[in-house]
């Protein structure tokens, strides 16, 4: 029973990992760009929620009303002003610039919030749970998983059914000629980053309710996001959910064997999948 419980918790945790991964996957898909500060932005979202909870007394989940648009706007402006300068054939500048941002952001948060571990309380939601047989499923993990499905579904709809979504897919296929379609590639890149940042905000706030976080908690989130993307297969949003779930379950089983093995078990399953099936489980189908 403990094992089944570990697996169910792992699946639900996978929803959070899919949210971590979606932003990374989206930016890589549209502009072949990986933001090494991705995890630190997730943590920044969590600290943003903390600030609002402390100053305005908002419910943690309600802080999204402010955190989400602020981060999306920050993503748009950051892409236009800085990151667009390093997007391109040579990947070195983009990696090093975002790596620099990661260090800057971590240390700024350390200055501002100290190294103390934080967690947001969602009130009664924290302890609410549903029993299915002898399984007990917490409301927060279930909410996370539901949010992940909703966000991924929303993104999928956006890419499939809007003009901007089509333009982003086309940019992903062949960004060089997107100008022929009358679209400004720099603007599309910034839209992609804004979308990714909005997802990061959601992931950050949910993470703040689910687990402890501190200023140095970013890099490991980047690694989880990356593992979920690679396991799921590049360029596939639903694959990302599958990747997140596999990672979550692997960690759950690892933790069940020995609490010290939780993270390591996830890494090892990732490496095995990378060796056995480097294209991921659900790679994007190309025509």
């Amino acid at each position: 029973m403990e094992w089944i419980n570990a697996i169910v918790q792992g699946i639900l945790l996978g929803g959070l990992y899919a949210l971590f991964a979606a932003g990374l996957s989206l930016m890589f898909g549209v502009m072949r760009f990986v933001n090494l500060a991705h995890g630190d932005f997730i943590v920044a979202g969590a600290f943003g929620a903390l600030l609002l909870v402390e100053s305005l007394g908002l419910h943690p989940l309600l802080t999204l009303v402010i955190v989400l648009p602020v981060m999306a706007a920050f993503g748009y402006v950051g892409q236009r002003l800085v990151l667009n300068r390093v997007v391109g054939r040579d990947i070195l500048p983009s990696i090093l610039v975002t790596f620099g941002f990661s260090v800057i952001l971590q240390n700024l948060m350390l200055e501002q919030f100290s190294a103390d571990s934080q967690r947001l309380s969602a009130g009664a939601l924290d302890t609410a749970s549903f029993g299915i047989g002898s399984l007990s499923i917490g409301a927060v993990p279930l909410l996370m998983f539901g949010a992940a499905v909703a966000v991924l579904g929303g993104l999928n709809w956006f890419f499939g059914h809007t003009n901007t979504g089509r333009l982003l897919r086309a940019t992903s296929d062949d960004g060089e000629i997107i100008g022929l379609m009358g679209a400004d590639r720099r603007h599309l890149f910034a839209i992609a980053t804004a979308l990714a940042s909005a997802v990061v905000a959601i992931a950050g706030v949910l993470m703040a309710v689910k687990t402890n976080f501190d200023p140095s908690a970013g890099p490991i989130r980047l690694l989880f996001a990356f593992e979920a993307v690679i396991i799921g297969g590049l360029g596939s949003l639903w694959g990302t959910l599958a990747g997140g779930i596999i990672l979550g379950v692997a960690q759950g089983i690892g933790a069940q064997i020995d609490p010290g093995l939780q993270i390591l078990a996830g890494h090892i399953v990732f490496l095995i999948i990378l060796v056995v099936r480097p294209q991921g489980l659900f790679p994007k189908q190309k025509g």
Binding site: R32, L36, S94, I220, F226, H267, L271, P278
Partner: peptide, 29 residues
């Protein structure tokens, strides 16, 4: 390297980081 070289470009960078973490967590055991 056999594992890391399955990834290219920016993902190679993060992949090497994961492998370093695997070594760290393993030695802690």
């Amino acid at each position: 390297a056999l594992v890391a070289f399955r990834l290219s470009g920016p993902y190679f960078a993060i992949g090497t980081w994961v492998i370093a973490e695997v070594y760290r967590l393993s030695f802690a055991q």
